[in-house]
Design a protein around this nucleic acid. Structure first.
Length: 912
RNA sequence: GGGCGGUUAGCUCAGUGGUAGAGCACUACGUUGACAUCGUAGGGGUCACAAGUUCGAACCUUGUACCGCCCA
């Protein structure tokens, strides 16, 4: 006997272990079967499972289990990402906590050893968490973007080197000195995508720059309403800045060429306070006459826009910051004329000191409070500085072209489609991708320099040496590559590239990639570029973009907001199946998901419902027949449920094929709860309890069969409870026939029996109608009342007799009889063509019955009138499709017939 | 400023040309040995607004308002 309910905490780990041990997560290796592969978006090795992962991996597992059951040769390739900055940060923090030396004093090799050790001990905790979700990845192939430490010749390492060298040789990777986003905390460059633009409260300091050479000009003066009332003579020009300290590196002041106020000043100079440098006033479109004073200070070395302006004006950028964002010292400070007391100051201290100096010199015109956009490092949370450095760049613009083309020509499509616009938008405006990082944890750049600064990019030091010539002393580039550089190669490196492996042959390109939209740029676009470049083929034909998981209020979940829900807590509370089903049911395309516990609880209840259906089957000896000969099934209720099952299977299959996950789960939910449990199991109770052995045998077989087929259909959504029931319904079955997860997907051979469906629908309508009437009229729930069919056709009479037991049981009837005229004191029930009478006069107030009838008659009148009006419209009849017109005609016929019956019933009440 | 999306029942959301749907919440009643993590019945909607296309619009077009998100 099955327990009262499913116990996920006990069953889930046991089942997962059994699956994994049996090897059924591995590809079948059936070379005659179609190959189907997905590479997991590699979670960060420092990461812990959050709701986004739960959704992302549930959907992947759903497809993987589905396709596996469909007989494909399936690979779900798992692994993790080495996450340069994040991991280095974790380990550095740990070193600090433990009171160890910092990484600089311990040295590069020792530090990298330490990171590896950390990864082996506590890295990749997320893998275990994915297992709790039921993810059926082939863990024997688990990959890591840094490769295998113990195998210096591992393919991940070789792949990254090869890609770097080849792109360099093609001119698609180059070294350049330009402004980068510099993270002063980690002291590394980061890419545009790793910078968060945040709106924060800040100030605009309006600074007066004295004009050099005694120049003055007339500046318009405005009254409070903004009208120009006159001019004043000024010997200064006002610039506004949110970063006053950068004035130390100013090389000029720009005004708009058409700004009349400043026209006479173009070509003149200002004398920068503090540093005493003469810098020119130049004309440049970048200056916005509407903004602030219309004049803008130009600091080419510390602002991306200013860099461009400075380049146009031929200014040499003056660097004033060092790698920790303090003011420079030494030669650079000399060049910029920075006074001694500013040198070495932190950027924010320098800011205060600059402002004080302006104030003291009466050059501070105004401090304006406003919100400013400020760039923050997404890992470090410190303000990012644009900084001039030498870095390696990928020519993303060139590489993007084939990747754009692939989507334009449909080699790869986005689902939902509208994300392709986001993709194009970014790809069309793509900037050079800075791939070097001043970190120690990562793939070290395969570039060597000789003493003259010549660079040699090669597979190995020996090769570089050979290229440089004997005797040259070479030093390897200190930097490592951006983590996304290696994850861009993920779809083929995980399969063994650059080696020619059978996996690569079989499983590349993958079938689909499943991810959230915020990863389109980071990862998807880059995989497209690299896949096309090195494999000559797109890495996947489909890109499915799912929603973000938000909290109940629609806010992004984050630790700092404290609104994060832990998926594992939900798994503990409700089981992995419930969480998975919730994710699936809510994964409507193109929407965000607002998660609530209630919803998860609801789907836990759903799995309990299924469990109890199986319990019912067990009590009634509905076994596991395995096969079913549909043609041999006789009884209408059984033929009906087989029809419904067939419809459900088709809907689920189509939903999964089309990435309409919510439609697939919806079809299952409705079938299991509203069709199977609410009706089928109720309808067969009399048969199972009855005397007719043939009926009983058939019903047991069909019930057992339908349940097993349902388990198969539900398995990809709720793998645990279904797998458990598969075995519990037929002990020993997993051992003899294999796990449920390895069974064949219901073939979806369509089966429909319209006659059986019509008959059962009639029974259901009868019961529903009677129940509704009883409830509305307040008939005591426990009472049994007689029902009389009035003037029924013989077909209806036979139906009623065939289903007498069920009608009596579910509608709480005392008996069913037939007459030609409606009995006295009965209330009419109209279903289709059939009028029957429920003898409930003793219980009810005739006035209530009358009201109920009048209400329905009123509604019918309205419906009939409006539809008749439609049908009398010449245009409708001639232009609408025939089937729609016919549908409306039929509707009117049905309604009219019902109205007649109800009117008769209404008349019958008048004498009472 | 550019782009994308949203506005449907109290709440969260499906529905994309042919009679407005689900889950939750709510109300009433609970009986039938699968299930109270349940059953039965019920109430609840000018589908943001306006104009247009169409025989017909929640759905297509245009515009307006409000709300999100991404990019600069």
């Amino acid at each position: 006997m099955l327990d009262q309910r499913f116990d996920p905490a006990e069953a889930e780990p046991r089942l997962y272990e059994a699956w994994e041990k049996s090897g059924c997560f591995k590809p079948s290796g059936d070379t005659s079967a179609q190959a189907y592969s997905i590479v997991i978006p590699p979670p960060n090795v420092t990461g812990v499972l959050h709701m986004g992962h739960a959704l992302n991996n549930t959907l992947q597992d759903l497809l993987i289990r589905f396709e596996r059951m469909r007989g494909k040769n399936v690979l779900w390739q798992p692994g993790t990402d080495h996450a340069g900055i994040a991991t280095q940060m974790v380990v550095e923090r740990k070193l600090a906590e433990e009171g160890n030396q910092d990484r600089r004093s311990m040295g590069r090799d020792a530090f990298v050893d330490r990171v590896w050790a950390w990864r082996e001990e506590s890295g990749g905790a997320i893998v275990g968490q994915l297992k709790r979700l039921g993810a059926s990845c082939d863990w024997s192939r688990e990959a890591f973007t840094m490769g295998d430490r113990n195998d210096p010749d591992n393919n991940m390492m070789r792949a990254v080197t090869k890609v770097f060298v080849e792109l360099y040789k093609k001119g698609l990777i180059y070294r350049d000195k330009r402004l980068v986003n510099w993270d002063p905390h980690f002291q590394t460059a980061i890419s545009d995508l790793e910078v968060d633009q945040r709106e924060v409260p800040g100030h605009y300091w309006h600074l007066r720059y004295p004009l050099a050479d005694g120049v003055t000009y007339e500046h318009p003066v405005k009254d409070e309403e903004g009208n120009v009332t006159g001019t004043e003579t000024r010997n200064y020009i006002v610039v506004a800045t949110s970063r006053p300290e950068t004035m130390l590196g100013d090389t000029g002041v720009a005004v708009h060429p058409e700004d009349e106020r400043y026209a006479g000043l173009i070509g003149k100079f200002v004398e920068l306070p503090i540093v005493g440098r003469r810098v020119p006033i130049i004309a440049d479109d970048y200056a916005d006459p509407e903004k602030g004073s219309g004049a803008v200070k130009i600091t080419p070395a510390h602002d991306f826009n200013d860099f461009e302006v400075g380049k146009r004006a031929g200014h040499t950028p003056l660097n004033i910051l060092n790698s920790v964002a303090s003011i420079v010292d030494g030669g650079e400070a000399d060049a910029a004329g920075i006074p001694a007391d500013y040198r070495g100051l932190d950027r924010f201290e320098a800011r205060n000191k600059v402002v004080e100096a302006f104030e003291a010199a009466e050059l501070l015109q105004e401090i304006e409070d406003l919100k400013i956009e400020q760039p923050f490092g997404d890992r470090s949370n410190v303000v990012i500085e644009p900084w001039m450095t030498d870095q390696w760049y990928v020519d993303a613009k060139t590489m993007a072209q084939p990747a754009i083309e692939a989507v334009k020509t449909g080699k790869t499509r986005f689902v939902p489609e509208n994300w392709e616009k986001t993709y194009y938008n970014w790809m069309d405006n793509i900037q050079p991708w800075c791939v070097s990082r001043q970190l120690w944890w990562g793939h070290r750049i395969p570039a060597w320099y000789d003493e003259d600064g010549n660079v040699y990019v090669a597979y190995s030091e020996e090769e570089a040496q050979a290229e440089a010539g004997k005797g040259k002393k070479l030093v390897r580039d200190e930097d490592v590559l951006d983590t996304w550089f290696s994850s861009a190669l993920w779809p083929f490196t995980t399969m063994g590239w650059p080696d020619k492996t059978p996996e690569l042959e079989t499983f590349y390109p993958t079938a689909t990639v499943i991810t959230a939209f915020d990863i389109i740029f980071f990862w998807v676009a880059r995989m497209m570029m690299m896949g096309l470049e090195f494999m000559g083929e797109v890495p996947f034909p489909d890109i499915y973009i799912h929603a973000l998981v938000l909290d109940e209020k629609g806010q992004k979940m984050s630790k700092s907001k404290g609104n994060a829900m832990d998926p594992l807590e939900l798994v503990d509370a409700y089981g992995a199946d419930a969480l998975r089903f919730t994710m699936t049911a809510m994964a409507a395309q193109g929407r965000n998901i607002r998660l609530s516990k209630q919803r998860v609880e609801g789907y836990r209840n759903f799995s309990t419902k299924l469990w109890n259906a199986a319990r019912f089957a067990e009590m009634n000896e509905c076994g596991a027949p395995g096969e079913m000969d549909y043609a041999a099934v006789k009884s209408p209720v059984n033929r009906w449920i087989l029809s419904e099952l067939s419809k459900c299977a088709a809907d689920v299959t189509r939903g999964l094929e089309d990435y309409r996950f919510n439609e697939a789960s919806d079809a299952l939910y409705k079938f299991i709860w509203n069709t199977l449990c609410d009706w089928y199991l109720e309808l067969i109770k009399p048969l199972l309890a009855g005397m007719d052995d043939t009926d009983k045998q058939e019903t047991r077989a069909v019930c057992g069969y339908v349940l097993d087929e349902t388990l198969k259909l539900l398995h990809p959504f709720m793998p645990f409870v279904t797998e458990e029931l598969w075995e519990r319904r037929s002990p020993g079955r997993a051992a003899s026939k294999g796990f449920l997860m390895s069974q064949s997907w219901p073939s979806g051979e369509p089966f429909t029996d319209e006659a059986a469906t019509a008959e059962i629908d009639w029974v259901i309508d009868m019961i529903t109608e009677i129940r509704s009437l009883r409830n509305d009229l307040g008939v005591p729930a426990g009472s049994r009342v007689p029902l009389t069919l009035v003037n029924a056709t013989s077909e209806i009479e036979q139906r009623a007799m065939r289903h007498e037991d069920v009608l009596k049981r579910l509608a709480r009837l005392e008996e069913i009889s037939m007459t030609e005229t409606s009995p006295e004191g009965a209330v009419s029930v109209v279903v289709g063509e059939t009028m029957s009478a429920l003898s409930i006069a003793d219980f009810v107030d005739i006035e209530e019955v009358r009201k109920r009838l009048d209400k329905e008659l009123g509604q019918l009148d309205k419906d009939i009138t409006s539809t008749e009006k439609k049908l009398s419209n010449e245009n409708f009849v001639s232009r609408a499709p025939e089937e729609i017109v016919e549908e409306n005609r039929e509707r009117v016929r049905d309604w009219t017939a019902r109205r007649e019956k109800l009117q008769a019933a209404r008349k019958g009440l008048e004498g009472l």
